[in-house]
Design a protein around this nucleic acid. Sequence first.
DNA 1: TGCTTGATTTTGTGATCACACTGACGGACA
DNA 2: TGTCCGTCAGTGTGATCACAAAATCAAGCA
Lengths: 215, 215
Amino acid sequence: MSDKRNIDGPGPAHERVYRSLRNRILHGEIEPGESLTLRGIASELGVSMTPVREALRRLVAEGALTLSKSGRIATPALTNERIEELAAIRALLEPELAARAMPRAHMALIERLQDINGQIQRLVSEGARSGYVRANMEFHRSLYLRAQAPAMLALTETVWLQSGPTLRAMYATQQQTKAVDHHMKIIAALKAGDEPGLRLAVRADVTGGLRMLAR
Amino acid sequence: MSDKRNIDGPGPAHERVYRSLRNRILHGEIEPGESLTLRGIASELGVSMTPVREALRRLVAEGALTLSKSGRIATPALTNERIEELAAIRALLEPELAARAMPRAHMALIERLQDINGQIQRLVSEGARSGYVRANMEFHRSLYLRAQAPAMLALTETVWLQSGPTLRAMYATQQQTKAVDHHMKIIAALKAGDEPGLRLAVRADVTGGLRMLAR
DNA sequence: TGCTTGATTTTGTGATCACACTGACGGACA
DNA sequence: TGTCCGTCAGTGTGATCACAAAATCAAGCA
């Protein structure tokens, strides 16, 4: 009871549990290979086991968690080939999303992207790791939302989720400063209406981030 | 109790329920927009509500089912834009999977693909609709399994699942004979080691099937 | 006849409990 | 001292129950 997490917001309990765990995974707050227990999460979040089980089942279906045999649940420890594969999927989907969003990208969106990128630069210089990941995803999501392709975006977020636990390792690399440059190229291509350039910039941003941890 | 479905096989109950429903959806045995109830499925399959809820939650996470507000569960009725989007996703992922499988495709696989395609031709001429869908998916899956890209394959199967309920409408079209031709081109490209041709053939097969229903 | 309103049934949700199984710790024997 | 086995705490699974909200149906009113 003492260390109940704050699971605010509306909706059913299993939805809140799902969002809470999903955020923790996306932001890299859970160690890769760390094992979770139903009763542990339940008591931590102040709910019963039932909604926790549903949330976990959902996360397992999305690849964010793996349930080893005998039902033990843990965050996946990604191999190098797996990371390569996830990077390849992102390199396929995200340029397409960006290209679809470009004709619908008006000035307000570009200003918002510039603003977020400025935040990223500031967070990088401050060394705020959790904020950096959050802002980085916000940048991409803001752009892709304009693509009007919910299924494609959902698949992309699934890939983000799968690579989430391993994201912790990325703070050690110096990719964060490069990401700001990539984002600037993305914004420039958006302004110029240069679709091939946009695809290239997105692809470089995406593969640069993930491929660095696969060595 | 009278009309219990046969949910054989090993594994936990929620897994069996999941497989049963997933197969029904994949084979287009469920009407688009049809609504399902927990207690209905539970009594039909002879289990309690708990495992059914987990299986449904998993299927909802994969986009195979949509839970409208207030938790009502139904199969999604796809709009035309959604079908276009799903076709675009398949056109992105499946050529890549085929290209990755090609260097690993030895003669036994090609023979297997030819065998499956012969079955498809036979099933089409017999008008066996459920068997056709099953064999068609078997063709693609057999090829993609060689790609050694489980995450990409899982995402692709998710897309198949999402377009499953609408597959019923495809029986009315005459795309089935064209599919056999596309498959022959795929096999020919595989034999010749022609990667661009393989990508084109897969893309044509994939988009031809789905885009026909979006009009 | 058409619409509203009320009660009743149906449905999803979440908590609790019993059960089977796994994994680990500890003691006894060779 | 090393190995084996029994015990026990801990875990996931599934059934049952109580509850609230939604949908459905029916009767009553205009």
